[in-house]
Simulated scan of single mutants.
Amino acid sequence: MSEGRDNGARNDVADFELARALEVASGVPDPEVPCVTVADLGILRSVTRDDAGLIVVRLTPTYSGCPAVIAIEMAVQSALLDADIEARIERVISPAWTTDWISEEGREKLRAYGIAPPVGSSGGRRAFFAEDVIACPRCGSAHTTKVSEFGSTACKAHYRCDDCAEPFDYFKCI
């Protein structure tokens, strides 16, 4: 085998390992909202190799004070180790995460789980405390009432549907 082909074979192996690491990391559920993965939420920023060839998984917390940050990093690290993948986890805080990064599939998973996904985009100054009409994720009614600015976590508000009377969280647009 020529040296060029040998390098190509090593690159193929490296690419497979990287692809496998991406697949494994992408499937890790969020500990606070287990219906969505870190990839669905958009907090999985990248899976690359450093100069020494070690896989590096970069994660961005939903906000810097999120109590689940370490749990998420540990869950990704554990999933990779369970798959016999050696990797380093890096926390990336800039640019800051935004709900705009939640995938469409992630938004649908939230809705199916009973959490209203963010409405609109994060561009406005008042996005975090917006007074948008929030549809009930259970019945779809727009007749809802905000019960509390903070729900089960700081990034969610608590609402009640005025039609079906079900309480639900709304994932605030940040």
Rank of each mutant, 00 (worst) to 15 (best):
T98S: 11
A112F: 06
V133K: 07
D84T: 07
E104M: 01
M74A: 13
F128L: 11
V56D: 12
L54K: 14
S103E: 11
A87Q: 01
I70F: 10
P137D: 00
L81C: 09
E90N: 11
P67W: 12
G140Q: 06
E90R: 14
A157K: 05
F150A: 00
I89H: 12
E108V: 05
C155G: 10
I115K: 08
T98F: 01
C155I: 07
G65L: 14
K109I: 02
T153W: 09
E149K: 12
A154S: 10
D82M: 09
T98C: 04
G151N: 00
A142D: 15
R111H: 09
E131H: 10
E108Y: 04
S94W: 14
K109F: 02
R111V: 05
I72Y: 04
F150W: 08
I134N: 05
E86L: 09
K109Y: 02
A112H: 04
E131T: 13
A142I: 08
S78M: 07
G124C: 01
A112I: 03
P118M: 09
A71I: 08
A75N: 08
I93R: 14
E104A: 13
A87E: 09
I93K: 04
G114D: 03
V69K: 14
A75C: 04
W97L: 03
C136H: 02
V56Q: 12
L54N: 14
G65C: 11
R111D: 01
R125P: 02
V57Q: 07
V147K: 07
R107Y: 10
C136Q: 02
R125N: 00
A157F: 09
T62Q: 02
L59P: 04
R91I: 14
L80G: 05
V133F: 09
L81D: 14
P95I: 02
R125T: 01
L110N: 00
D132R: 01
M74F: 13
A127T: 11
E90I: 13
E149S: 09
E104L: 13
G53Y: 09
L81A: 15
P67G: 11
A116Q: 08
G124H: 12
A116P: 07
G106I: 06
G65F: 14
V92K: 01
T153V: 12
R126G: 12
G124M: 00
E105A: 15
E131M: 01
E104S: 12
S122C: 13
S148L: 02
P137A: 03
T60P: 00
I93S: 04
V69R: 10
R111W: 11
R125L: 11
A68R: 10
V76E: 04
V56F: 10
I102F: 10
L54Q: 14
